[in-house]
């Protein structure tokens, strides 16, 4: 049923309900906006609602923020932008390729191969650490390389035990998002520091944080893109195969353009996640590559409840995402597939 089919009083009731809901959702944003223009006196002096009527707007908070009195604002903004964009683009791109492979090709492997990987990875680390006396970082690297190699080699043989397929792989990816991120963040921090001792600086570095975000975004990207690719008509790709178009050109020249709305939606979701991410940024950065959520949260802890300054910082964190969503939503329109089939 559409609102348009309602008549008379019920129609006004529906409209009124929608307006109330709109007000509820918009009020916090409005409140943040006007607070960022209030003077400290106006904030603590009780609630005021209308600029120029209730209170005299002031640019104090904004000038303090932009002049750098409140931490390395420009630096943080730049770090957030660079990391956000590059991590989302890389995650969407890599995840799309993985999702396409999972949709169009059949993978089969034995559960035993996966268990071999886990056993060698953990066991190898412990052996390297306590028996052979290697450092943590070196043990980790050796153990993982050995585990991966052995798992791949073992999958060549007909091992006993249950067989796993594409759906199990997808579940494995998605399951990584089921445990609390703090588990991964803490482990990642330890791993990064160990790598740092070996000479690869990962904590508070562009590479470190971006890698972490790509890894943590991939499950969602693969899961979303798999649905988009599954909806594509396979005949279009088959037509290209018969026409002797190489696989990589089918993917880049035909599949990706056809799934543009999906790619953009996935990119937006990933970007929103990376842009707002707090926990990893808190653990893995300290000054140079600090991101906006850390800065905004830091406002409160460093200087106390200076709501005018926090509001200005929060708005700066929101606006780029709104602009991005506005620009990209035009490209997200459906109907791109029209004319391919039927």
């Amino acid at each position: 049923m559409s609102v348009r089919t309602l008549k008379g009083k019920r129609r006004w009731l529906a409209l009124g309900g929608c307006l109330v809901w709109l007000a509820i959702t918009f009020f916090p944003l409005y409140w943040v906006l006007i607070t960022s223009f209030k003077t400290p006196i106006a904030v603590v002096g009780g609630p005021t609602y209308l600029p120029f009527v209730d209170f005299e707007p002031s640019l104090t908070a904004w000038s303090e923020l932009l002049s750098g009195q409140r931490g390395q604002f420009f630096n943080t903004f730049l770090a957030s932008t660079i990391i956000g964009l590059s991590a989302s683009i890389a995650a969407t791109f890599i995840g799309a390729m993985a999702a396409y492979a999972l949709v169009r090709f059949t993978f089969r492997f034995r559960l035993l191969s996966a268990l071999i990987f886990v056993a060698i990875a953990f066991g190898g680390f412990l052996v390297g650490r306590h028996v052979l006396g290697y450092g943590q970082g070196i043990s980790l690297i050796y153990a993982f390389v050995a585990a991966l190699a052995l798992a791949v080699i073992s999958s060549r043989f007909r091992l006993p035990g249950p067989e796993l397929g594409n759906n199990d792989i997808v579940f494995w990816f998605v399951s990584q998002r089921m445990f609390p991120p703090i588990v991964a963040a803490f482990a990642l921090y330890l791993m990064y520091t160990e790598m740092g001792k070996l000479g690869f600086k990962l904590v508070d570095s562009y590479i470190g944080l971006t890698f972490a975000y790509i890894a943590f975004s991939l499950p969602i990207v693969i899961w979303l893109m798999r649905d988009f690719f599954e909806a594509l008509p396979v005949e279009v790709e088959e037509a290209a195969m018969v026409d002797n178009v190489p696989s990589w050109r089918i993917f880049f020249g035909i599949v990706l353009p056809m799934s543009k709305p999906g790619l953009i939606a996935t990119f937006m979701i990933t970007l929103a996640f990376v842009w707002n991410e707090f926990l990893f940024a808190l653990f893995l950065t300290n000054s140079k590559w600090q991101t906006l959520p850390i800065l905004v949260a830091g406002q409160n802890s460093q200087r106390g409840d200076e709501w005018w300054a926090i509001s200005a910082a929060a708005l700066v964190a929101i606006i780029p995402m709104m602009v991005m969503a506005g620009l990209l939503s035009r490209l997200m329109r459906s109907g791109l597939l029209l004319g391919a089939i039927k």
Partner: peptide
């Protein structure tokens, strides 16, 4: 071989000319 499918299977983001010439171009 050349194959014609029941549901046409055209490349939706290309024009008619590009659709016809894509294989040769590639």
């Amino acid at each position: 071989c050349s194959m014609v499918f029941q549901n046409y299977a055209l490349y939706p983001h290309m024009t008619v000319a590009e659709n016809i010439g894509y294989g040769m171009k590639v």
